[in-house]
Design a protein around this nucleic acid. Sequence first.
DNA 1: CCAAAAGTGTTGACTGTACACCCATGT
DNA 2: ACATGGGTGTACAGTCAACACTTTTGG
Lengths: 220, 220
Amino acid sequence: MKKHYQPVTTDVVIFTIEDGQLKVLLIKRANEPFKDQWALPGGFLFEDEEPEHAAVRILKDKAGIKNVYVEQLYTFGGSGRDPRGKIITVSYFALVPKEKIKISVSDKIQTPTFRSVKKLPDIAFDHNRIITYALKRLQSKLEYTNVVYSLLPRYFTFNQLQNAYEIISGRKLDKRNFRKKFMLLKLIKATKKVLKGERQRPAKLYEFTHHKPAELKKFF
Amino acid sequence: MKKHYQPVTTDVVIFTIEDGQLKVLLIKRANEPFKDQWALPGGFLFEDEEPEHAAVRILKDKAGIKNVYVEQLYTFGGSGRDPRGKIITVSYFALVPKEKIKISVSDKIQTPTFRSVKKLPDIAFDHNRIITYALKRLQSKLEYTNVVYSLLPRYFTFNQLQNAYEIISGRKLDKRNFRKKFMLLKLIKATKKVLKGERQRPAKLYEFTHHKPAELKKFF
DNA sequence: CCAAAAGTGTTGACTGTACACCCATGT
DNA sequence: ACATGGGTGTACAGTCAACACTTTTGG
């Protein structure tokens, strides 16, 4: 058992919902390789840094956000991924409500930008593959966990909730059945607030009863 | 983005079914730390070695087996796991049919041994946690994939199949319902062979139609 | 008063679960 | 002949999916 040291990086797939679309945060690379191409935020671990710590650090640096849902995605290894040689990448995905994001305006070079997963630009490394993998994971997590709470603001309407499901899963859901099913889960409760100011009947606002990840029996 | 190198190890949780129990392969550590304690097979990556390659290598060395189901489990990082400091461990789990295993008899020091997951000895590092994690993953994979094929011999009876599900999930299943449900999946086909020699009616032998991992709609 | 989204129940189809008896063999 | 696991069908309950109209507001 010989001991060797390996170069290790972390990449983070940061999802949010904006304008009725699922979006992912990309930055423009400031350095070679793939200089000036879009890529996932990420980079080499600091000395003795844990991969998850790096993911959290990147979230704060690039999206100005903390205390959000972060989950390890997959560890990619091997050549053909990075022209610098064999590099191990521990990837993460994060879910953030649009309201919490504060992109640093001073970051004029990397210009972190949310892009719709439906029409992504050319992307550096094998980051397209990582995004695809993350999307698949997100879709299946929706079905058997309560993670959707981490994409919504504190108060939300039933429609926002249903839209989150529809956007991510890519299929339309029945309004009545959705409401019935979701109510049985006891994950959310109605508040006394309503969303007024639109030009139709005001919608009741709901909130989640818990803000911790949990697994559910079944779902959608 | 400073570039640092990290010590990286791989551990493999190798499951098999033997004597009606789910077992996991442990070895007795030959070196410090935790010398002479039971642990998962694993170790540092070779230079420029990919984590999955290391997992396959370990499978061959310790269980004399190749071409089996291997899947990445999780990447553990951080301190408190290994007295040598911060080490990143990419863990894998593998499923092997008992018939294929050839444990090297020359390995008198490490004595690789399958132990029932129900009564494990004291285990080095945080390997207990990794085994627990692997078991959970295996349980859920049973429900929505066809991985069970990788725990059974080429020809098997319906009872062996059902037992695999019962042992891993930890609950009894109804014989008639199980057969009905499984047949609808079209994953297996009856052969002309039967298992004779027992002191009851001979059981038909079945085989899987495919030996590749696949996802299923739903399951159990 | 018109447009737009909010909100609300019922029915039929399907899926899952519970359950008991005869069959083929070895001893 | 008997003990042992092998093999088979039905009925009821629970869950899922389809579907249309009234309500409340802003303009």
